[in-house]
């Protein structure tokens, strides 16, 4: 389980269908501890669905999710696959942080309350303990001065940094970012990008779905180009963004973005 060469996360043949549409088509992927993986691709290519499938917000039809060497999320009974016990699913999600495009902060809680909520309710820590963890996380994202305000008073960039702190408060082993800067005004993208960059420098394992090429260029160990539920190409940023890249579709997509 703790062997160095074993991947933190392994996806085998992940397939997700919405009625007749196959959103994710038999994806295989290994993510090792400390790796920063960036998934790019046009809208509707299945990147978000794949990300959501990892922490079981999306139920998949086929495939296996192996986290730290054990298969998670699904059980077989009477020859059919089902989502596993709710407790087991919650326990897995507690180890995987997720940041959403639209933040989804809890509006009725203060900034501190939002960040405390996981340790307090999910991990059952005492209020004092949770408060001290939350305070640390707010310092990390640079928002300790906003701890007592409600989310409604924050800018988009600040909201997203609180959302990152909320996920970090659970001390996750893996962070999933689902288009973390897509809902932000251009001038606010930088602060969120910097926060994620700092996290990456600290060695956090992360998978980022984004349209923001800065993530891919500056902090990715590996970039995956996804289209129609398939991985079309993957490699280091240098490989994928090099002029020598010969895939027309990727070239076209990148040209539109860059």
């Amino acid at each position: 389980m703790n062997s160095a060469d074993q991947p933190l996360l392994k996806l085998k043949n992940i397939t997700k269908r919405f009625k007749s549409l196959t959103a994710v088509n038999g994806i295989n992927l290994e993510v090792s501890a400390g790796e920063k993986l960036v998934i790019i691709g046009p809208s509707g290519s299945g990147k978000s669905t794949l990300l959501r499938a990892i922490n079981l917000l999306e139920e998949i039809e086929e495939g296996a999710i192996i986290f730290e060497g054990r298969e998670v999320g699904y059980v077989m009974s009477k020859g059919k696959r089902h989502l596993g016990h709710p407790r087991a699913i919650s326990a897995l999600r507690a180890e995987i942080g997720m940041v959403f495009q639209h933040f989804h902060l809890f509006p009725h809680m203060t900034v501190l309350g939002n960040v405390m909520e996981g340790p307090l309710t999910v991990q059952g820590k005492s209020a004092d303990e949770a408060r001290s963890i939350a305070t640390d996380m707010l310092v990390k994202v640079g928002l300790s001065d906003k701890r007592d305000v409600f989310p409604a008073t924050l800018s988009g960039g600040q909201k997203q940094r609180v959302a990152i702190a909320r996920a970090l408060a659970m001390r996750p082993k893996l962070m999933l970012f689902d288009e973390p800067t897509s809902a932000l005004d251009p001038e606010l993208v930088g602060e969120v990008f910097d926060t994620i960059h700092t996290l990456a420098d600290e060695g956090m394992t992360m998978i980022i779905v984004t349209h923001h090429m800065g993530f891919a260029r500056e902090l990715a160990d590996r970039v995956i180009f996804m289209e129609s539920g398939n991985f079309l190409a993957q490699g280091t940023p240098e490989e994928l963004f090099s002029a020598g890249q010969d895939n027309e579709r990727i070239r076209g997509f990148l040209n539109r973005l860059l």
Binding site: N55, L57, S90, A91, R93, A94, E95, I96, G97, M98, F100, H102, H104, L105, F106, E117, G118, T121, V122, Q123, A163, R166, A167, M170
Partner: peptide
């Protein structure tokens, strides 16, 4: 999204 965010932190 509120339910998803709550579930995502393990609730």
């Amino acid at each position: 999204g509120q339910m998803e965010a709550a579930k995502a932190i393990g609730m």
